[in-house]
Amino acid sequence: MQALLNAIATMALPTDAQRVFHGRGGMYPGCEHWVLDAFPPAFVLTSFQPVSEAELATVHDALTQRWQQLAPDQPLNWVFQCRHDSQAETRLMAGSVPEPHVVTELGARFRVHVLKGQNHGLFLDMAEGRRWVREHVSAHPKLKVLNLFAYTSAFSVVALQAGAKSVVNLDMSQGALAIGQQNHQLNGIATGASFLAHDIFKTWGKITRGGPYGLIIVDPPSYQKGSFVATKDYARLMRRLPELLAPDGHALLCLNAPELGLAFLQDQMQELAPELSYVQRVANPAVFADVSDERSLKVLVYKAPQLTRL
């Protein structure tokens, strides 16, 4: 656990939501189960295996000591979550968590909920993906954007802030989309976004009628029974991309499945949508360093061909 304690002892005062320590990447032997996130004004410590009360007390002492150095006039707020079948729990360890709890990232504001559920409302590992969308839309204003598996619609917020013409947010979860609508309101975005609580695979007609799109974002769960299983369902999305993309349009394909490497996406795209050309892999935030690029989050950019002039 020493690497986690070292990260706490040297961390800067977090202002934006961000990961502080990423043991899951395997860069710190013996700490693979630990993750520490900052959702100001609270920290969230996650363990993917059972841990002792003594270990939690050690972390508490480390956080307390560092917090007294960083913000002595502010209370320490932190939450512990264990994500293991034998010890699944979420517990407030010190201080309090605001309600509503709003965090920032590069000037955008997002509603989060760190005391309930395993997903907190904003995936921190996708920070560079959101940055890419912001920069891409800024360079190509007035784009029509399709945001598939939109969750709480963070991509939509940054796209509209950057000058997108419109964003269609589609997700099966009405609750997630409701938070997405709140996120748009938090950022003063009153127009341009639509929210469809539908099964993507049963909504192709409506999706197609709204196109073509200058940017399509595909950020599905890797495995969600009854909704999406990457190994069989990603291919169904890839086949649709060429008809949904405008000439010169881009697709951002995301996959967070350690067991599936880059070839899973690249080989299938070559087979199922060969007219789309590979552009780049968006780098993950530095704090998410992994012993294997194949295991870490994969965010790939593809581009449709230009319109052929006769």
Rank of each mutant, 00 (worst) to 15 (best):
M1F: 05
N6F: 07
A7G: 14
Q18H: 06
R19I: 14
V20T: 13
G23A: 11
R24D: 10
P29F: 12
P40V: 04
L45W: 11
L63A: 09
T64G: 06
Q68W: 15
L70A: 13
P75V: 10
N77K: 08
V79G: 03
Q81N: 08
C82Q: 11
R83T: 13
H84T: 06
A94D: 02
A94I: 01
H101P: 04
V102R: 06
F110I: 02
V112I: 06
K116D: 15
D125F: 01
M126Y: 05
M126C: 01
G129L: 04
R131I: 03
R134T: 02
H136S: 15
A139M: 09
P141L: 07
P141D: 12
N147W: 15
L148I: 06
Y151E: 15
F155W: 00
L160T: 09
V167L: 10
V168Y: 01
N169L: 02
D171L: 07
I179P: 04
Q182R: 13
G188K: 07
G192S: 08
G192L: 14
S194R: 11
A197W: 10
H198W: 08
F201H: 03
W204Y: 03
G205N: 15
D219A: 04
Y223R: 15
K225Q: 10
F228D: 00
D233P: 00
L241A: 04
P242F: 02
H250R: 05
C254G: 08
A257M: 01
L260W: 02
G261E: 14
F264P: 00
Q266T: 02
Q266H: 14
D267H: 03
Q280Y: 06
D293I: 02
E294G: 13
S296Q: 15
L307V: 11
